[in-house]
């Protein structure tokens, strides 16, 4: 049996220092992702960085909403605007109280499309130091990063819809987040492929800006993503359902005016 080095930083700065370049570091936030992997022998941490005392749980509710990496989904749901609040309420009550924003962001969680639609930015550290970038760029990155916080502006309105997730899976069959911001309507989708993170839908956004109806604009979602087969649903199913879900979300956004 190999021994695990466990470190428990007591400040964000110490967490960043102990994370270093993140190679061979297993970050433990709420534990909902890492602990079962360890229990079932699917993960053998070399260095476990436990964040429960790191002070990364700050939540600043001002013009910009700043959400620390270890803020729980339950706390986020209380203060977040739509579409983020609904996304944070998807897990059951106990998981909401334990799962963190940083972990959810990392693992194909329900927050991803909501954060993209809101134009949120992620502040993180890792090789090359601290940086802040749009959530989509963060998700597209491949090197290990420690999330410090997520920052976002409140939108004018937002809607989150998901095609029901089976209880024991970590992601939805399909999820759609739409947000009306000062510069127009933003659309993001998730769950369309097992290993893909959520993405923005520029074709849908362009169609809307050009005056298309919700239904016509939603059809353009298949220019933005390529749905795949996985154990939850077939690509065929996803291609048919995704435009419907996007259209519904856009219609609900329209009604919220």
């Amino acid at each position: 049996m190999t021994t695990v080095e466990v470190t428990v930083p007591t400040s964000p700065g110490e967490a960043a220092e102990l994370f270093g370049d993140g190679v061979a570091v297993t970050v433990v936030g709420g534990g909902t992702i890492v602990v079962p992997l360890v229990t079932h022998g699917q993960l053998h941490p070399v260095h476990a960085l436990m964040l429960h005392a790191s002070g990364l749980d700050e939540l600043v509710d001002g013009d910009t909403l700043t959400v620390g990496a270890t803020v729980t989904l339950a706390r986020l749901a209380e203060i977040a605007p739509e579409p983020l609040a609904t996304a944070a309420r998807i897990p059951d009550l106990e998981i909401r109280g334990q799962g963190t924003v940083g972990g959810n962001l990392h693992t194909g969680g329900d927050l991803q499309p909501a954060l993209i639609a809101l134009g949120a930015c992620v502040r993180s550290v890792g090789a090359g130091g601290e940086r802040i970038e749009p959530v989509e760029d963060f998700l597209a990155g491949s090197e290990p990063r420690l999330v410090l916080a997520v920052e976002l502006e409140r939108p004018l309105a937002g809607v989150y819809l998901e095609q029901r997730r089976t209880h024991s899976r970590t992601y939805a069959v399909l999820s759609v987040a739409v947000a009306r911001r000062d510069d127009g309507v933003h659309v993001a989708v998730g769950g369309f492929a097992e290993r893909a993170h959520a993405v923005a839908c520029p074709s849908v956004e362009r169609a809307l800006a050009g005056g298309a109806t919700a239904r016509d604009a939603a059809a353009a979602v298949l220019e933005d993503v390529v749905p795949e087969d996985d154990p939850l649903a077939s690509a065929w199913y996803r291609r048919r359902v995704l435009p419907v879900l996007v259209a519904r979300a856009l219609e609900q956004l329209e009604e919220s005016r």
């Binding site: 433990v28 534990g31 909902t32 602990v35 079962p36 106990e94 334990q98 209880h167």
Partner: peptide, 29 residues
């Protein structure tokens, strides 16, 4: 039960709040 947080039967109260004991690393509490 399932030991990955899905079934609920390991739920205990931690400082009065229901939590999955199978997901809670004891070092964090």
């Amino acid at each position: 039960g399932c030991q990955h947080g899905s079934c609920g039967t390991c739920t205990v109260l931690i400082d009065g709040e229901p939590r999955r004991s199978c997901l809670t690393p004891v070092g964090a509490i």
